[in-house]
């Protein structure tokens, strides 16, 4: 089932969806979004690509195996939790760094919580793509 229109649109769509998924991931702490939703959107992007073109092409576009992505995500989430140990806090205590903070602005907030959320993002995306790619088949 190849549709030329979908095929042509897919490339743009995937790029937009991926960009959007990262956007959702990053804004998650203050506005609707977050790692879980971001991961789902990212997965949808690749699913669209796999339906429009081919699972093999989608795999090539992803570059790494989705199951590796999921496991790497789990590892990153764990690292995010363990970061607290460096500062002597309990497992999963959020650690924050405000770069360039001034009197009236917080500057650029970086945190172990964000690391954890990136892990969640990768886990969700990787797991769903593992399922979809295998179900759709490479043939």
């Amino acid at each position: 089932m190849k549709s030329i229109i979908l095929h042509a649109a897919a490339r743009v769509l995937v790029a937009l969806l991926l960009l959007f998924s990262v956007f959702m991931l990053l804004r998650g702490h203050n506005l609707p979004g977050g790692g879980f939703i971001g991961g789902l959107i990212g997965a949808v992007g690749f699913v669209v690509y796999a339906i429009a073109c081919d699972v093999r092409e989608a795999r090539a576009a992803l570059r790494v195996a989705p199951e590796d992505l999921a496991m790497a995500g789990l590892g990153i989430a764990l690292v995010g939790g363990l970061m607290a140990a460096l500062f002597g806090d309990a497992f999963f205590t959020g650690q924050w760094l405000f770069i360039g903070a001034t009197e009236d602005s917080k500057g650029l907030p970086l945190s172990s919580v964000l690391v954890f959320d990136i892990g969640v993002y990768l886990v969700v995306m990787g797991s769903i793509l593992t399922l979809v790619f295998n179900l759709e088949g490479d043939d």
Binding site: N30, F92, F116
Partner: peptide
């Protein structure tokens, strides 16, 4: 440091 309570619960309060 987060205004989205759902997300803050997910990644901080109940991260485990």
């Amino acid at each position: 440091f987060g205004r989205n309570i759902v997300n803050v619960i997910l990644v901080d309060f109940r991260a485990l």
